[in-house]
Design a protein around this nucleic acid. Structure first.
Lengths: 179, 179
DNA sequence: CTATCAAGTTGTACTATACAACCAGACGAG
DNA sequence: CTCGTCTGGTTGTATAGTACAACTTGATAG
């Protein structure tokens, strides 16, 4: 593949299109956008593959999933297993097992919700927080290495794109009412 | 369809940074960059999870891996199993099995390299091409839906970021690759 | 009280994956 | 030419992550 990135100035030369003419909406036939969209899928996928493979080697202690789950727990400061499941599009059972493993490893703890005894609110333990930080650190190092040379502006924009994409993904409302 | 999350202005407001104080990214302690980098990992991972889950439901015929492999095959117009393995950081054996499955399904064919009889050059078959196109189409639709509301410029920049990131990842030795 | 629903757990099966052992062509050295 | 070695690929085996379905337990409505 020919990846003719220009200099490492702006890493990304979006230049081209932008003729954008209102473009925003899913204008059918926007071939440039199509190409971009296709690239996005392809590259995301490739990335994901590598990430998993790499992650496994870097931190044998903490699988990528576990890491992710811990991360989410930290981020949202305690949530229910079901929330994790829906957030990551995982089955309840999968989360349940992961959570069990994490608890067994002493990285998280479960607190019964006083309001609803069915619910277990998950929280990071000290150990969990520590490990998470540590793994995050080393992951971040790896990323940083990859991303060194990227101007901060691009980093942030990239991050913002991802966040935006994923949040758009999130379900609007997940009220049961499915009769 | 979802309401457009934002205006189609610039989905992403990176604005801020850029002042970057020297901007040379890899400067240790660049907390903004760190945050961005962390977001990138997190979001990429979340994305990956969803992608896999979703892909499975959309196209039971073609796993995400298979799809990716087919895509690569089309893109590079025939390559060796080893190439696929190294490109996706997969083990030889994994690729071998995937390839076997794909062949069994009639989506690819193996041609012995006349120059080196150890080598099997993989090519898409008609059926493979067709299926790939079809899956790509429907995946793209899904993506487009997610990404509708994104100005083309952002799409392209996003795609470019991903490509850049991944290609930087790739080659053990390539040209100097400044930075 | 009973029916029903929601949160989690457990049983089971499948897939992707890695690692290691192995087979088969290619290639250089003697 | 034969031999060791390298490389591309396959097969055996083990493991993790996952889904689906059946079940348990608590909450809630009729």
């Amino acid at each position: 593949m020919k990846a003719p990135e220009e200099s490492d100035e702006t890493v990304v030369t979006t230049g081209a299109s932008a003729d954008a003419t209102g473009t925003s909406s899913d204008t059918a036939g926007t071939s440039a956008a199509d190409a971009a969209v296709e690239s996005i899928q392809r590259e995301m996928t490739a990335f994901a593959r590598r990430a998993r493979a790499t992650a496994g080697r870097m931190h044998p202690e903490l699988s990528l999933v576990s890491y992710t789950l811990l991360g989410h727990l930290e981020e949202c400061g305690g949530c229910r297993a079901t929330d994790l499941a829906s957030h990551y599009a995982l089955d309840k059972s999968t989360v349940s097992r992961q959570v069990a493993a994490l608890q067994r490893a002493g990285l998280i703890e479960r607190r019964l919700d006083p309001d609803d005894h069915r619910v277990q609110v998950l929280h990071l333990t000290e150990a969990g927080t520590r490990i998470l930080a540590q793994v995050t650190e080393s992951r971040r190092d790896a990323f940083r290495e990859r991303l060194s040379g990227w101007p901060e502006e691009d980093l942030e924009r990239f991050a913002a794109y991802l966040v935006h994409y994923n949040t758009a993904h999130e379900p609007p409302v997940r009220k049961g009412s499915a009769s």
